[in-house]
């Protein structure tokens, strides 16, 4: 009956930020995470960075996955990071970004604290494995 000692359930927030209506990728990843046994909170479309921060803090997620295909990652992601830092949540939240991100920007985002950027064509298994291996120990 008790499952103490087993792997703890990983909670993820899959978020779409800004004026970007392409959510197929977010849906696919949300589903893949679910099937991997994660608890996935999906934000829906068109969220402001503040809203994402609020959801990430309240839901106390292990992983925040932001999907951006609009090219606005340079503005939106830093705002999310700022917000997470304000609540002291940046250190133990694994922040990953998916979508269309040019290589140069990728390095910049990783500099800011994004753990990994997953571009088009990434195998779902790769992302899931990455999350499993890199999720922060939060005790």
């Amino acid at each position: 009956m008790s499952v103490e000692g087993e792997q703890r359930t990983i909670r993820c927030l899959v978020a779409k930020v800004g004026l970007d209506g392409h959510d197929r990728g977010a849906h696919v990843i949300a589903r893949a995470f679910r099937d991997a046994g994660f608890e996935v909170i999906y934000s829906g479309l068109h969220n402001a960075p503040d809203e994402i921060v609020q959801a990430a803090v309240q839901e106390d997620v292990d992983v925040l996955g932001i999907s951006i295909l609009s090219g606005a990652h340079g503005t939106l992601v830093p705002k999310v990071i700022e917000g997470l830092e304000e609540y002291g949540a940046m250190d133990d939240t694994l922040l990953i970004v998916g979508g269309v991100i040019p290589d140069d920007d990728k390095a910049e985002l990783e500099e800011l604290g994004v753990a990994e950027v997953f571009g088009p064509g990434t195998e779902l298994e790769t992302t899931i494995e990455f999350v499993r291996e890199n999720v922060r120990d939060r005790r």
Partner: peptide, 20 residues
């Protein structure tokens, strides 16, 4: 899911009136 334990928790999407 009783099989994987995974879940998609979507209630937040409908709770837009008080975000922020």
């Amino acid at each position: 899911s009783p099989f994987t334990g995974g879940a998609v928790l979507g209630d937040r999407i409908r709770m837009g009136s008080t975000v922020g």
